[in-house]
Write a protein that binds this DNA or RNA. Structure first.
Lengths: 201, 201
DNA sequence: GTTTTTATGGTACAAAGGTATCATAAAAAA
DNA sequence: TTTTTTATGATACCTTTGTACCATAAAAAC
């Protein structure tokens, strides 16, 4: 048989090229020809590894979700020691969700494009992306629960509601930064302003 | 000369058809032929009134912003008497931003589609939409200022930061409801949970 | 009533994009 | 070495889409 190739790795490469195209020229311009050119291969190869465009788009959502998860984990590990305080973890997560460099800006822009597309295209299933968001909310809620146990959480606050709120606040601020209504600095100020009340040092 | 027609009203009709198509089948499917069919006129007419597709898309942003503003005003007037309390006004605004019926859901979905598109297509100027959002933030900040004057605002809270926060929270919750992560009821609960702390009765 | 300007319809054309087809290189297995 | 299966390239085709062109109806002005 032929030179055996790791199909999954090949698909990851193609998905990476797709995300670069989507970040730069929009998801609607992530056609087979554009992605092939970006990935440095022929259109036929993309067809060979994915068959149809839609399956390529679907696979790219998994790739995007995985990379977002990796980035969040890396930032958490980079900022926290062996026994991270809940506030440190939460702040790392929320900061990661803000577009403060070109990479995170691209991620968020592509995520928004997928999200908007999924609203009217039921065939496009973005479960990988939404599950990733749900997981983040659970981590925040857990950390708030830990904080309450150790008396760090302001009395009268509900961990679940606060977790939902922080996630929504962070998403909204991400939009505002993406759209140019707020700077990353303003967004971080607002997040800390809230965390100061929720988890006073 | 010919039967004179109100061009602007005609453009409004076309923009309405465009928004309906965008809400139902996605902004990427709002082509000249689809919009013409939805509006019940020929493709040639759309060209006559707009010339190019991009100008049609641009005009539709103004139409969308205007209708969102009208809806918000209507809701505020419906809920508030002659001397509306700040909390009442703010709650009406934030509730309006949530997709709780098919109309507001359509509005928000199309808004999200435009926003995502504008991130990678610099030619698409969505100033009408962003200015509308900015105006809402200013109204909230003003109302919080009024509340502070009359002692209704919890001491130590900054009206501007809180206005930014509420707007971002509301936008994030709108996304969550659109995406199915939260119900409208949960979103309203979270908003009231925060307003209770900010403007205690 | 003729003319002139606006409004509207039908259609053709060129580009783009997704998919299918034909062909071939390459390497493992016999 | 031959064969068989995988991997890759080039390209043709059909549909969609934005735009341009040609024609005509309708009404105001003279």
């Amino acid at each position: 048989m032929p030179k055996v190739v790791d199909h999954d790795q090949r698909r990851q490469e193609i998905a990476g090229a797709l995300l670069r195209v989507a970040a730069g020229r929009g998801l609607h311009n992530a056609g087979l020809r554009e992605v092939a050119a970006e990935a440095g291969m022929s259109v036929r190869l993309i067809q060979y590894y994915f068959g149809t465009k839609e399956q390529m788009l679907l696979f790219a959502t998994q790739h995007l979700a995985a990379r977002m998860g990796e980035r969040a984990m890396a930032r958490i590990r980079a900022r926290t020691g062996e026994t991270p305080a809940p506030r440190t973890v939460i702040e790392a997560i929320l900061d990661e969700a803000l577009p403060d460099d070109e990479d995170s800006r691209s991620f968020l822009a592509v995520y928004k494009a997928y999200f908007a597309l999924s609203l009217t295209d039921p065939a496009l299933d973005i479960k990988p992306l939404t599950e990733s968001s749900d997981a983040i909310v659970r981590v925040i809620a857990d950390q708030l629960g830990v904080a309450r146990e150790s008396g760090q959480l302001t009395p009268g606050r509900d961990p679940d509601l606060e977790a939902y709120s922080l996630a929504a606040l962070s998403a909204g601020l991400g939009d505002a930064v993406l759209g140019g209504s707020r700077t990353p600095g303003q967004a971080r100020t607002i997040i800390r302003y809230h965390l100061d009340r929720l988890l006073p040092a």
